[in-house]
Design a protein around this nucleic acid. Structure first.
Lengths: 261, 261
DNA sequence: CGCACACTTGAACCCCCTCAACCCAAGTGG
DNA sequence: CCACTTGGGTTGAGGGGGTTCAAGTGTGCG
């Protein structure tokens, strides 16, 4: 209780502080959107900005979960490892994403910056105090958690039951939905991650990702002007494939007898 | 606001109602545990008990999410389908489990009773009112959601990167942890679901499940007195395999040339 | 008994993995 | 300038883990 008052006082005592949050570029696309204009000072009082470079691991599975983050710039990969090095990426966190769900006493996943990433850090006590103070924030977190849970279930369906082509088609379309800015062209997609990351996300290998991209390209379903760019040519077909209906591209294996009984 | 008062009044006006919740067998192993003794009347006022028989689908993916449930008896499988019938089970919900996370306007999954199942139903408005009235309940739901999210991520690792033997070993141990009652023998495991359900949960086929059970049996790692029962003989080995270390059972394929260059 | 249902086991196949070579662009340093 | 390296991506050949297809084994139940 003392703690909460302290934070309130901190924020209210320095109205200039609130500007940092008020002018934040992800304010309306993150959980912070739950806070009213007048409450931003409390938020700003406990938020600490931070930058991490590509390749840097800033959350490590199993470590005590002392900090929570909001991504303000760049992209992050969240992943789990097996002792022998096998890796499963459980999700990509872009601008506005909150990191800290799926957390008990320790982190259940690791997080690595895919490119130069901006973060807004909250310590556990300060987040707890915020939640006590602003129940609406807690509701917002619950909503977010439900969305992530639904996404996780969709990913389980993909990992457990879809073919390579279906997985990649689903991935391309999900990217198109999740990262196209308002008013942007959803058929031009930017991929901040490598083929290896895509493979570890879709439960496949680099080679299969590359081959499947080539198949889609040869079938005129997509273009890949650069390795980090996709242009969707046939959205309808990708949608059908991704959902498990529709004809996959024949994989044109050599030395295979023609399909005759 | 009027609504909340109505519910409060309902509960407080009839103290006998509270007994239904007070004597509930899952009271302390479900989200309801967040409610204090004196608050149970409010809970009981909006909870409706229900029984569904084995095989009955009581939540259907895509339908409007009007109701939320707590499982009071039996087991439920939660799953998603592809149009051609491929199925991925995203989880099993046992006694005490809350169903309704991963829900937006519509259900993100379907739910089917594995055996005779007892449910406690809440309508969306009444749950909303409860959450408004008892913020501690919202925090409890958030905790639950985080745990489920962590479990979902673990399952992604399994589906994306583990072998059949690793998957089944993980499954057996998870069952042992999740369903052993306090004081019970964790090495005697009851399986309410069929081999087909296990297959759809682990992203494999019935045949592979059966074969892998046979391998484990032949290697003296487990016993299966009945199809619905497992006895763990070598927990250490199962743990190692499930985590991706440790030697898998050789699968003894016939007609394969010996491993010579 | 006859039937349904769950499970097991065998044999052949196939999708994806493994291993390996190669391409290409971006440094880096003499 | 070129030689060399490094990291990401592509492509090919062959093999393997799990699937598919098919037959057979209980087991409960009308």
């Amino acid at each position: 209780m003392v703690h909460i008052q302290k934070i309130r006082a901190l924020g209210l005592g320095d109205p200039a502080l609130a500007d940092r949050c008020r002018q934040c570029n992800v304010r309306h696309s993150s959980v912070c959107d739950a806070m009213a204009e007048t409450e931003l000072a409390s938020l700003a009082a406990v938020a600490i900005e931070k930058t991490v470079e590509r390749g840097q691991v800033f959350i490590e599975e199993g470590n005590p979960a002392d900090d929570f983050y909001t991504v303000t710039k760049g992209s992050v990969k969240l992943y789990k490892l097996l002792p022998d090095g096998r890796q499963q990426i459980t999700g990509f966190a872009g601008t506005g994403h909150f990191l800290g769900l799926a957390v008990d006493k320790t982190y259940a996943f690791s997080a690595e910056a895919i490119d130069t990433v901006g973060l807004c850090r909250f310590s556990r006590p300060s987040l707890r105090a915020l939640l006590d103070d602003f129940p609406v924030l807690e509701r917002r977190l619950l909503d977010t958690a439900c969305k992530e849970l639904a996404a996780a279930q969709e990913q389980m369906l993909l990992l457990g039951r879809k073919t390579a082509q279906e997985r990649l088609a689903s991935f391309i379309l999900a990217r198109s939905h999740d990262t196209t800015p308002c008013g942007g062209n959803p058929d031009h997609i930017h991929l901040p991650m490598t083929r290896g990351d895509i493979a570890d996300y879709l439960g496949l290998t680099i080679e299969t990702i590359s081959r499947t991209f080539s198949l889609f390209r040869a079938a005129k379903r997509i273009l890949t002007p650069t390795n980090a760019e996709i242009v969707v040519l046939d959205r309808r077909w990708l949608t059908d494939i991704g959902q498990g209906c529709g004809h996959a591209v024949p994989s044109a294996r050599p030395n295979r007898p023609p399909t005759v009984a």
